[in-house]
Design a protein around this nucleic acid. Structure first.
Lengths: 230, 230
DNA sequence: AAGTTCAGTGAACATATGTGCACTACAGTG
DNA sequence: CACTGTAGTGCACATATGTTCACTGAACTT
């Protein structure tokens, strides 16, 4: 009821984003809040430009702080980029986790997985777009960071694949390559999805991915357990 | 032997790139030369940054002309970008042409094609890197232009595939999707190749691509001519 | 020989950028 | 309560950017 001990209902000074009608907030909460605002601004701006052309002043302004205050959160723009990679990769792993859970129940494995993919891309569109855009983008640091994570993602998938009876007996090198192939297809589909501007385009991308995935999996059935070494 | 009618062995004014020890040159030749210098500078700069962060002044300086002279060649940076896309796509079609010629003679279709791919990427590294980097880059104009061309490339491949006995009878939609799948794999390989920094990395990328291509083509053998509609 | 065309110049502009510095206000703490 | 740590401010600077304008000189056209 009564106003909490810490008053200042509306401070005389507009204090960045936090000022948007928040009465009491701890110091850490406010810091986290502007940090989020910086990341969000960057994520939004990266819809129309690439990371190397994104300026410190631009994100600072978008977050409602003065340029120099940026340094209270990140030593430089590259660090901001790395933070975005971390967040985005989180979405990726979450995706795989859901797909794994689904694979054990759903009879239509491909369609079910694709549905999950679409849902995730939809829910974290900015992050996935960021990944697609910067995977081979101009920043060497981000390229390296994303490349590493995508490779880890593929390895994670390879472990899952090894549990499939038909595949389990393959040489691990082949399993990894199959996982890489599937990841390539998934990434390509993600790129199509973030680029899709209407529902039809999404549906088309899904249809294409489903058919192509089926083609690949048919290849799996015919694959010789022993790699034809030369 | 004797100096040609048009003299001016070394003009009193250093005229941009053309001044690098070229005695006689027609006006058009000189213009073409600086245009080339602009494109080359851009191509080189795009190794370390993305197109949206590439500045007009930067390419002008690299080409040895004053910023304002840039407008004598392109109305804006986007036009320069489109010109780069055109050039790069040229390399792509050249690649397919060579691969086609090879396919009719070489018994090892996959390895032969990959060898050609590697050679082309090596010969036109800057162009292929540009394509990979801007395919999903920050510039909407370039994204659209490249996307269109890649789709045309896939369609061209589909026509070739339709001539393969096992595939010819498929519904055209499936042939197109197979072509798209193969193009996805090719593009992914190109991305790996331009990212590869030593010979080992190149060899690994080729090995991976060869195996994956074999997996896909095995799927082709098992594919039912009629698309399993739902 | 005189005239035209046009790639390239150089100065100027308004605006954007990264970063250093001294500061202020307020949440957290003894 | 006074004290301190720190997110955010405001100013300043050197530098980079796109674009305008009037210009120059040499290749071409007549």
């Amino acid at each position: 009821m009564s106003t909490p001990p810490t008053r200042t209902p509306r401070s005389g000074r507009r204090t960045a984003v936090a000022s948007i009608e928040r009465g009491a907030e701890s110091r850490d909460e406010r810091k986290a809040r502007t940090r989020r605002a910086l990341l969000d601004t960057a994520l939004d701006a990266l819809r129309d430009e690439s990371f190397t052309s994104l300026s410190l002043r631009e994100v600072a302004k978008g977050a409602g702080i003065v340029p120099t205050a940026f340094y209270r959160h990140f030593p430089d723009m590259d660090s901001l980029g790395i933070a975005l990679v971390d967040e985005s990769i989180g979405s990726l792993h979450e995706l795989l986790r859901d797909a794994r859970a689904n694979a054990e129940s759903d009879a239509h494995l491909i369609r079910g997985s694709l549905r999950i993919l679409v849902d995730h891309v939809d829910a974290h569109e900015r992050h996935f777009r960021f990944l697609a855009r910067e995977r081979f983008g101009g920043s060497a640091i981000l390229r390296k960071a994303i490349g590493l994570e995508v490779r880890m993602f593929a390895t994670e998938l390879a472990v899952d694949l090894a549990r499939v009876p038909e595949i389990g007996a393959w040489p691990s090198r082949d399993i990894q390559l199959l996982a890489d192939l599937i990841v390539t297809l998934i990434v390509a589909t993600i790129e199509d999805l973030v680029e899709a501007d209407d529902a039809d385009a999404v549906a088309a991308a899904v249809e294409a991915a489903a058919t192509q995935m089926r083609m690949v999996l048919l290849g799996v059935g015919a694959w010789h357990p022993v790699t034809p070494r030369r």
